[in-house]
Design a binder for these strands. Sequence first.
DNA 1: GTCTATATGGTGATAGAC
DNA 2: GTCTATCACCATATAGAC
Lengths: 213, 213
Amino acid sequence: MDRPPAKPPARRKSWRKDEIIAAAAECFMRHGYQATTVDDVAAQLQCTKGRIYHYYASKTDLFFDVHREGMNRLFAALGPAMEMEGDGVTVLEAMCLAHAEAMLEHHTFENVVAQGVHMHRFDGATAEHKATVQALIDSRDRFEEHFKDAIRRAIDDGSLRAVDVAVTAKVILGALQWTIYWYRPRKADTARSRAALARKLVDPLIEGLRAGD
Amino acid sequence: MDRPPAKPPARRKSWRKDEIIAAAAECFMRHGYQATTVDDVAAQLQCTKGRIYHYYASKTDLFFDVHREGMNRLFAALGPAMEMEGDGVTVLEAMCLAHAEAMLEHHTFENVVAQGVHMHRFDGATAEHKATVQALIDSRDRFEEHFKDAIRRAIDDGSLRAVDVAVTAKVILGALQWTIYWYRPRKADTARSRAALARKLVDPLIEGLRAGD
DNA sequence: GTCTATATGGTGATAGAC
DNA sequence: GTCTATCACCATATAGAC
């Protein structure tokens, strides 16, 4: 029996959604969610907004998908580092490096994620979106919890000073996530150059600034 | 000759502008510049927007004044710490503590400042606002330069490890400024409680996380 | 100085041709 | 599936009464 011809590998049916999400992420990053018009996103795609509304019911739904993709990329980057062998501070350092590199590499999406975090704090979501918003908040919380766990373990095994766990997690993540405000990808950027910058970012956090005697 | 009756001390003529700025800062913080309507600000003041437009030609001008006030408060808080006596790292630590406390205390205004930083990176200003925007960018740069100077001096006098000056300044300021995303003032907050939190924020930055042998 | 009423332009979303 | 045309609404800003 003839089988249907092999499909191109890994070509999902929703690749059009992916390109819409990418274009939206770019616009949301540049101008912010509110200031971005659906026409802006269409222009980025060099099409009209009819196409976008064929795949997304609203601008809000589109934002949610961008946000989700941004979180997925953060979790994907963090996973391997969490599996690293070594004492507590070694694992924490690997997590910091992985997160820093992810923030730089996926800087467009993570910029939008940060907007979402801020929006969720104040804007009461409509009833229909409530569940979606809650899922995204939960996702952020789980991410931060990974760092708190790592800090706790490192303190327990004596490889980290006994600092305030919650505040320290905020300090680490804040320092790394603030890159959205100043880092801009350049053509010459490579995985290697991002890793070098990540190294410079994480070093003062783990080793501290004060000179040893 | 009779002189006019003494005016109430320190009562400036522009106190109405101040209350408009404060109301606008609250709204901009909560919903962002774009999502805030002039009617929102008026509602916050329990008046109509006629009043606001009597003092401000546009929503943009109002935003600029909030931003300016936010920067003024940051500089005012940093000044005394920069005059501190001691070696390089002592001064840097004092600056960090002062900045952290200012970010917490003026959290509403500094939230808006961060929005401004982000906006300026992408939104081409209209010709009429160009000079104003440039002045605010310069002001941000000068603020960061104070930290870079302090880091350089501390490295020179041997009290700080030889870290990357520019990146370390970003790490420090990022960690402290990220508070806008998670800190919320509470009724029970005092200068003392803010100072305690600032201490917890600055400690891991200056001393580092890894346990000494 | 503050209000009400309104002009004006833009934006999210829809309907229907192709 | 993508486009064109359009509607309905909302927000900035102004004009003019009080």
